[in-house]
């Protein structure tokens, strides 16, 4: 489990998280959704141990503030919203930096992670020359290489992803979400801050919906993603539809011609 209890976070004079509790289970993709400024990224940064905050975060039962950086690095990887690379490392070198904590990284681990994100052919290109979306995938490859297999010797490993598909085209959005889904299906835990409600509905098992610095609702995707709850969180009227089950014929009236 990844659990946060009574998280309070103050940045400057603003309290951005109020007494927030959060749970994510291994084997699941847990999405954190909510409007801009609702505290999604702040919550993720508390979960990854970036920011000093009130309350307690435990990862697989261990308080993360008691773990050394390299112990934490072996248990969870973090993909920030945007990463800047100061020097012209190649894509492969970038992924290898992610293996810094490992004493003896598995042979070819970096190349496998690059292949998984579809960047094997860009291994020798400087990261700074890749497009924004490719860079985002390169950093995902770095995080995948860092955590290694979804389940460690005695506990699941975790991916904490902050808007992992924000810079991607639709095919790569699906590819990246599938990587997250596969990681969870293999026993690992995934927590992702998501803006795209449709992708959330397709890939997440549970959703925590943030509003005004506290969770408005959390539970299974179907329970949270209702017209009422989403309308309340985003402050606008929304109607949640559902796709017809596969194999059922359906007709869209927009397709009619007179």
């Amino acid at each position: 489990m990844l659990s946060a209890r009574n998280i309070t976070l103050t940045l400057g004079h603003n309290t951005v998280l109020h007494d927030t509790c959060f749970d994510a289970a291994p084997g699941e993709v847990t999405a954190i959704c909510g409007p801009n400024g609702s505290g999604k990224t702040s919550l993720l940064r508390c979960l990854s141990g970036d920011l000093p905050h009130g309350g307690r975060v435990t990862l697989n039962g261990e308080d993360i503030s008691t773990l050394e950086p390299w112990q934490l690095a072996a248990r969870r990887g973090v993909l920030p919203q945007a990463s800047q690379l100061a020097f012209p490392f190649t894509t492969l070198e970038l992924v290898e930096i992610g293996l810094s904590h490992a004493r003896a990284p598995a042979e070819g681990a970096a190349l496998r992670a690059l292949a998984r994100t579809g960047l094997a052919h860009h291994a020798e290109r400087p990261v700074n020359t890749l497009s924004g979306g490719q860079q985002q995938r390169a950093h995902l490859a770095r995080v995948l290489a860092q955590v290694g297999s979804p389940v460690g010797p005695d506990s699941p490993r975790w991916l904490l992803l902050d808007e992992p598909v924000s810079a991607l085209d639709i095919a790569h959005q699906l590819q990246v979400m599938q990587i997250a889904r596969d990681f969870a299906d293999a026993g690992g835990g995934v927590v992702a801050v998501m803006h795209d409600l449709n992708l959330t509905a397709m890939f997440a098992d549970s959703v925590t919906l943030m509003a005004g610095g506290r969770p408005l609702a959390s539970g299974t995707t179907a329970d949270v993603m209702t017209s009422d709850t989403l309308g309340k969180a985003y402050g606008c009227t929304l109607r949640v539809g559902s796709a017809p089950p596969p194999g059922t014929p359906f007709v869209l009236p927009q397709t009619a011609t007179a």
Binding site: W70, Q71, V78
Partner: peptide, 11 residues
């Protein structure tokens, strides 16, 4: 070179 936060994530 990835920034302080990411360096910490890496261990």
């Amino acid at each position: 070179s990835l920034g302080e936060a990411t360096a910490a994530h890496i261990g």
